[in-house]
Design a protein around this nucleic acid. Structure first.
Lengths: 199, 199
DNA sequence: ACCTGAACACCGTTCAAGT
DNA sequence: ACCTGAACACCGTTCAAGT
């Protein structure tokens, strides 16, 4: 009945399984504990098998960052769609979704925005760009509604992201108590609106 | 004449030497390439010798983060003292000093604000708090000069720090081109002032 | 008090060989 | 096309022993 009693020689979906158990290990034990050999063991496969799917350890980390950005992008989109049509509710929904993602999965966030992707790993940056794709449109809506000053849509999106990313980083690193999360997020949105409204 | 021709059995200042070559390796090759054994080799000492000074690898990383915060704090202080007396020039100087530190030494910045220090490593958080000690006072000066709204000195400092930290993270990770650094820093200060001025 | 040298268990990576 | 098994060079960590 069950098809998992005896594993076939060809695993079938080894790449996906490695990625998902890697994500779990990253969340529960951090990046340092993440070893290719351990992942192979958990998948019931030889230690050299992952080599077929990930050139090296860094390639696995890059892939984790990419799927992270994909999930983040999906959550941002969902949040925007679920919110009311106006700029302000959409802005709040977006910021809230980002911060929820960022604090729920601290180690993944760190990996996604890590310096390691600076060289090579163009795909990671593309995934990041795709995840934040909805932002400029949202900023333009804010301008159209007269809530944001004109001519800042790209910069404003980066500024908003930078602020909430910074807040999440400070909290994830233990530099700021997590009980201040909501207060700071509200302040970020507030400061953003006040700081970028038309004069 | 030279006293380094033959190393004595007792190194003398092994801890300091390990830390400073570790800092260099971190800057040039990243955290992954940082190995205790390699540091020991470079110091001309057995691989087990660092154990006397750092309980394990994480303890070395913590120490690096601490000295990083100490240097950052010193640079912030110097910048404030060198600036004109007013709030605005001091604010610009502080932000500029932080961003310079953050982008010059990306791997160190990452280590300093890493999730790893969340558990244990209370000293790292104390070092961080000490480095940012001048911020609340600066915010109070802004309030006294009527440029910042009252009652936000702690929160305002965190917000400012979060925004510039986020900008540095985005640039260090390659998500935003480094040619936008000055533009974004100016925008951060501008948005901060507009967003927190008294109504 | 500080350092050495051997030992242990673990990695990532490579490569010929198997299915 | 995908996986195995042995091999290599490297780790971090521990501990008895040296100075």
């Amino acid at each position: 009945m069950t098809e998992t009693e005896e594993r076939p020689y060809h695993h079938g979906s080894l790449r996906d399984e490695l990625l998902s158990t890697a994500e779990q290990t990253l969340r529960e034990h951090g990046q340092d504990e993440l070893s290719l050999r351990e992942l192979a063991r958990r998948a019931g496969v030889s230690h050299a098998a992952p080599r077929r799917h990930f050139r090296d350890r860094q390639a696995l980390l890059d892939a984790l960052a990419i799927t992270g950005f994909e999930r983040l992008g999906a959550q941002l989109e969902t949040a925007i769609e679920a919110a009311d049509d106006g700029f302000s509710p959409r802005l709040h929904a977006t910021v809230g979704a980002f911060v929820r993602f960022a604090t729920r999965d601290a180690a993944l966030l760190e990996l996604m925005f890590s310096t390691k992707h600076r060289d090579g790993a163009e795909e990671v940056r593309e995934a990041a760009a795709a995840a934040f794709g909805p932002l400029p449109g949202l900023m333009e809506q804010g301008q159209a509604e007269g809530l944001l000053a004109a001519g800042t849509s790209s910069r404003a999106g980066i500024m908003l992201l930078a602020t909430v990313l910074g807040i999440a980083t400070l909290i994830n690193g233990g530099m700021v108590g997590s009980e201040r999360l909501d207060e700071l997020v509200d302040a970020a949105v507030d400061q953003f609106l006040r700081g970028n409204r038309p004069s």
